[in-house]
């Protein structure tokens, strides 16, 4: 009996790892409902397991993305300042802010980026991008070898400060609402900073491990991380992420975008619904 359950959790986790690593998301969108609805796990335990599994998605896939230079380490470090300080702010102001309003606000923001993403659904790579001063100063531009296009793609990065500000708020949202490991990061890099879509998801994937780590430490300290649940989830996600990263480097950006759009719209609707119904 326990073997069957573990196996089922394991298989769902592998799926979550594949999806999460391709899209640059944490995979909590799959793990949390699966654990609570299918296996009757408590919300606290499910969220704790999901948070640790975000680290697994990130770490497992990043090895491949770093080798292909798809993850931009400099952009990641620049933006992690935003997410890390934002998460800290979120934790500090948590008691003083209306969650309802935030859910609606961030939901609307996601809906808007979903709409923008839909408009640019046919573009494999961004057009000509003129780097801003900070991007030049910090040397954020990059290049990667695209295994699908079979050529080197050089790209520029722009609007570094707006990108950082969005990361700050996305970090705060993650702390306040417990959502959005990657769902805000990908559109910020894709649409605001005008990075290639595959670089955006791979860099988001690289970053989410760090964001999740601080939350995970706290869950550990509180004893919410249950080894018998989190163990199979995390191992499954780790293996799934290895597979997902190998698939992603050979996929079209337009295909990945098509997978991303329904998820961002779904999350936007769920958030607005939560804000209204709470």
């Amino acid at each position: 009996m326990i073997i069957m359950t573990t196996l089922e959790i394991f298989l769902i986790a592998i799926t979550a790892g594949i999806v999460g690593s391709i899209l640059g998301l944490g995979g909590g969108i799959i793990i949390v409902p699966a654990l609570t609805l299918l296996f009757g796990v408590s919300m606290r335990t499910a969220v704790a397991a999901s948070t640790v599994s975000i680290i697994a998605t990130s770490t497992g896939a990043a090895v491949a993305y770093l080798h292909d230079r798809l993850s931009n380490v400099r952009v990641a470090m620049w933006l992690e300042m935003g997410t890390a300080t934002g998460a800290l702010t979120g934790a500090l102001v948590a008691g003083y802010i209306s969650q309802r309003l935030l859910f609606i606000l961030f939901g609307a923001l996601l809906a808007y980026s979903g709409y923008n993403m839909f408009k640019s659904r046919k573009a494999e790579l961004p057009g000509e991008v003129v780097p801003d001063r900070i991007s030049k100063r910090l040397n954020l531009a990059g290049s990667y070898y695209d295994q699908l296009l079979r050529r080197r793609v050089d790209y520029q990065v722009t609007r570094s400060i707006p990108g950082l500000i969005i990361m700050y708020f996305s970090g705060a949202a993650a702390g306040l609402l417990g959502i959005g490991a990657g769902i805000f990061k990908v559109p910020a890099m894709d649409q605001v900073m005008r990075m290639p879509f595959k670089v955006s998801t791979a860099t988001s994937n690289f970053m989410i491990g760090v964001t999740a780590a601080s939350g995970a430490v706290v869950y550990f300290a509180r004893g919410d991380v249950k080894p018998l649940i989190a163990g199979p989830v995390v191992l499954g996600v780790l293996l799934g992420a290895l597979v997902g990263a190998r698939l992603m480097v050979r996929m079209r950006a337009t295909t990945i975008r098509k997978l991303f759009i329904p998820l961002i719209i779904y999350t936007a609707i769920m958030m607005i619904y939560k804000g209204i119904s709470q």
Binding site: V52, I55, A56, T59, G209, A216, F220, V225, A230, G231
Partner: peptide, 9 residues
């Protein structure tokens, strides 16, 4: 195993 993973990032 979970602690090792957590320490990695």
């Amino acid at each position: 195993g979970l602690v090792v993973l957590l320490a990695t990032p």
